[in-house]
Design a protein around this nucleic acid. Structure first.
Lengths: 201, 201
DNA sequence: CGTAAACATTGCATAGACTGCAATTATATG
DNA sequence: CATATAATTGCAGTCTATGCAATGTTTACG
């Protein structure tokens, strides 16, 4: 047999634990969610729970795979507007991650009822943000590394906003997230170069 | 006597505890910093420690006072570039907070040795970010509330970057932070509207 | 196959974070 | 000075999280 049996099971259990964590949190509220309750809901021991996740928050938020810089040479050499390229790159992350809309919706519900989770969700994207930042530096040069980092953070935040929209709207497909990210970034850019009052555009 | 004696003492103890927390963390590393060690360093009981701060992180990072929206009408009606106004607003926050450079330097040291603190430091600014976001909505209209939030987050992140620069450079005064914030925001704006490769400008 | 290495699950013991309560002491106020 | 208000603390108890060692499963390989 392929050595993947273990790996597949691990992934499976990992998702089961996450689902258990989210479900219990939505049922009882985060304050009253104990690791024991999560473990019991997932049908494992609390010790095993901590073999999969370092803490409760991590179990609820799950894991992300940052983009592979080796696959992103196009980003460095592209001549397209930077906003388009960032949006495309982050959209790709979602596709690669095979994000489950049902799970994402539940996660967003948790964030809504427990706002403390929003910063944690952002932190969860830090790896991705770092990769984006490095790609920006590779594209524009090291002189503005600080700004690259700011822009990368901004982009992942825009991605989270877009995910929130996508999660609750069954009419949208994953590719629409790319468009949403682009629009948000574009609008922020417009705001940034504005002077006085009034609506955008 | 004025009823402020208690209040002054409270502030004093509060700062003493923070200093103790930071010092112990820099001495032993965050992993090995116990509430007991902090309390002992500050000359109080661990129970009192938790009367002042909800947790260790909060003790290390201290508190911030967000800008008072009632004092910020000028922001809503200004015709100056938005970047300038945000930078000025955030610079004002620093002045009002009477930020101690020595403390800030130590906090930045903690962040450097324990990168997990950067997200927490950002979270600490969430109140400020919210006020900025509301002011932006008041200035530009509610249609782009989401973008206002993104821009406000970006601005507080830029502020943190600027603080890092200020903390280690005794030649800079608080007003220089305003300039730094403006420059960073301006550069990000420029990046956002760029196409292909090459340095800024 | 069958066996040894690698990995997964679990229980147990333990440290540390944090809370609620009640007692004690200090400060404010009239 | 007497009384309300607030600060400090000890103690008991809950929950998170980790290390360790025992036991059970998979995998790899001769």
């Amino acid at each position: 047999m392929a050595t993947n049996l273990r790996e597949r099971r691990r992934r499976q259990t990992s998702r089961e634990i996450q689902m258990a964590a989210v479900v219990v949190t939505l049922r009882c509220g985060y304050e009253h969610t104990t690791t024991e309750a999560i473990a019991s809901e997932a049908g494992i021991s609390t010790r095993t729970f901590f073999n999969y996740y370092n803490n409760k928050e991590a179990a609820i938020l799950g894991e992300t795979t940052p983009p592979d810089p080796a696959q992103a040479d196009w980003f460095i050499t592209s001549d397209a507007p930077i906003v388009d390229d960032i949006a495309h790159l982050l959209g790709q992350v979602l596709k690669d991650d095979q994000v489950d809309r049902n799970m994402m919706r539940k996660i967003m519900d948790v964030i809504e009822t427990t706002p403390d989770f929003l910063p944690l969700f952002r932190k969860r994207m830090d790896d991705t943000s770092l990769v984006v930042s490095n790609l920006l530096v590779a594209r524009f040069g090291a002189a503005f590394a600080a700004e690259a980092q700011l822009l990368a953070e901004l982009a992942t935040h825009a991605m989270i906003d877009a995910l929130q929209v996508w999660a609750v709207d069954d009419n949208l497909v994953v590719d629409d997230v790319t468009t949403l990210i682009r629009e948000k970034l574009h609008n922020v850019g417009t705001l940034l170069s504005r002077g006085g009052r009034g609506a955008l555009r």
